[in-house]
Design a protein around this nucleic acid. Structure first.
Lengths: 202, 202, 202, 202
DNA sequence: TTGTAATCGAGACGGTACGTCATGTCTTGCG
DNA sequence: CGCAAGACATGACGTACCGTCTCGATTACAA
């Protein structure tokens, strides 16, 4: 299956250039922000020619995305499963508080906003994100919820994907649009409300 | 409160130039997308000098924001209140299905993504958004939920803001990150799940 | 008579930028040579944006050409006429020796080679050169020869343009192709040989 | 005489690559012109790696020069001597008309301009040119003039190199700088004027 | 009625970054 | 080892926009 435009030969790729580029991209997006992140800047910081970036990535966003990928693969072994103490509410609060902490961490905030923006405007990148980054994490969440479902802590007819979005959606939205303070208490509140529902207790 | 740099005199502002600029911004963001939207492009399309834009708006995002504002004020009278038939679930489904339809409408999709991106990266704009665009709408939602609360359809101790985010958050997230199909059925599912909670019915 | 591509408005042109560009071009061609002369270099040296060069000149060669033009117009008044002592041979030797000196002057050598190269490869520039730079000078030469012709020192049927090329051509060729030493003696020799012809004296 | 940088072993050189490179250089300079002639282009057209060019030639100009050399050696046997009918004027006109024809031939025009430019800016190449290309031809000219001198058709004290430049210089200049039409009549005129001199016939 | 002071369209300006192209060096794998 | 292939750091290309600026020409308020 040949490429139309003389596809570069990946076997000849210089791996240290690749690493330098991804590291530079992550560094820079944190330092100068997404809007002022430039391909020239990345190349300069990485000690690499611009062409070496354009040869292997179609866009600034793709570089950033790859940087995130390796970041996550770098920590592999770390998050293989979500905590499962048997107490779903406690476990979810734990995880969501961790998420809140990460989103509030300036080292992650700007890069993740950048990634979100790229995904927002590039469906291809969104698909890659869904498959490579969000997918595995969502699988973990699904498994934890499924375990709870088997334990009778979640409704049998519940669509787990909807459940996931109900728990994490409010958080991400508040973070992205700064529509309110992103505190551990908020995380707790969301978990409680999602589990109990909006209706009065019977 | 005087500006240091000879603040422009708003009374002398040419309203037709303003309208042309906002209209051009909306048109263009739909045509060429957020990334390729330029101040020069807006000025050219609006038949206006670049300086006329820079005189009245601090950034491209501010123009876009203003364009949305006038868009909403243009339709005023339309959404003064949310439907209140007494049946909260039905009313919410109605409203969320309308939201889904809007987000899927190509005329709104790209401009709203653009606005979202600007908000993501500009806290000042986010504040303006919270006050001028999101605020009034959220107030309507809050009122509808409050009415339901008074009718005993929602828990008394419920934080209405959390409730709002639990209902609309999943939708906005799925739209923004394209993490799944954005259908009327999904809207229904979200409403039902939010109202009942994730737990099994007792 | 409108231009097709939104011709720039010459009346708004910044004359000091123009001067800085031409001066920088002349300086740089002398310093780094024609091959390494770059538009970016000129812009940098002149403290000017690249676009300001591209706005007003179609090519690097055109800038260089303009630089020569202003150089010559700058010295106006200097060479209005060629010396006419009545002794054609002496006058020509004087002029040719001056030309030799100029061609050997490092300040002129490199820039003139650059100009020659541009003319060689760009007919449009060659036409401009013929009209604006070579033309006036050639007219002076023609006049001096015509004066000699009237004085009976040149053949009546002589084509003065051919005569001019016979006198200056050898010099320019030797200079351009370095086909031999370019000395005052050579200048004298050329004048003598051209005047007497190659044939034996009768 | 060892090179510092592991001089390539000429005996292992692939002669067919060499020929392909020289042919490609000549073809391309005619097709795209001197300015757009690139080493990559030559390598691509020749089906050769870039390194094979850089290994054997120091510069683009050297390739071009070599291409000319082989071109001339290819026609060897053709011009071993200049015509010598005894009538110098007729013979010179014949030769100069041939030169005019060659310079006007589009197959030779662009390549020769390219070579001329390289020579203009590279003294080393100019020396090589003087020795390998111009030298032999000049020797033929010198011999023909010498023959005429012996026959009493040229002045005894004449410097034959000056004479050669007086005859060919005007032609080359007019060609290179396009300072006038390059016609057979012009060739004749130059010959006549050079032989008779500018002075009136006695 | 006539300044006079602002906005306006237009667009030149010094810059930064774009994405492409060519340079000359280096590395890989074939013959 | 020469060679075809092509990745690499470098740097210039010519273009697109940035945000500032200057230029008449309207336009509206104050003298």
């Amino acid at each position: 299956m040949a490429q139309s435009r003389t596809a570069p030969d990946a076997s000849r790729r210089n791996p240290s250039s690749r690493r330098a580029i991804l590291a530079a991209a992550l560094d820079l997006v944190g330092e100068v922000g997404y809007t002022k992140l430039t391909v020239e800047g990345i190349a300069g910081r990485a000690g690499v020619g611009k062409q070496t970036i354009y040869r292997w990535w179609p866009s600034k966003g793709a570089v950033l995305f790859d940087a995130f990928l390796t970041l996550n693969e770098g920590q592999d072994g770390e998050v293989q499963t979500l905590p499962d103490s048997g107490d779903l509410e406690a476990d979810l609060k734990l995880v969501l508080r961790a998420t809140v902490a990460e989103l509030n961490d300036p080292r992650y905030d700007e890069p993740m906003r950048a990634l979100s923006t790229e995904i927002t405007h590039d469906p291809a990148l969104a698909a890659a994100y869904a498959e490579r980054l969000d997918g595995p994490l969502r699988q973990l969440k699904r498994e934890r919820l499924h375990s709870a479902q088997r334990a009778g802590q979640l409704a049998e007819e519940l669509d787990l994907d909807v459940a996931i979005e109900m728990v994490w959606g409010p958080l991400l939205n508040r973070w992205l649009h700064r529509s309110g303070p992103l505190t551990p208490e908020y995380a707790d509140q969301v978990v409680e409300t999602a589990l109990h529902g909006l209706r009065p207790r019977p």
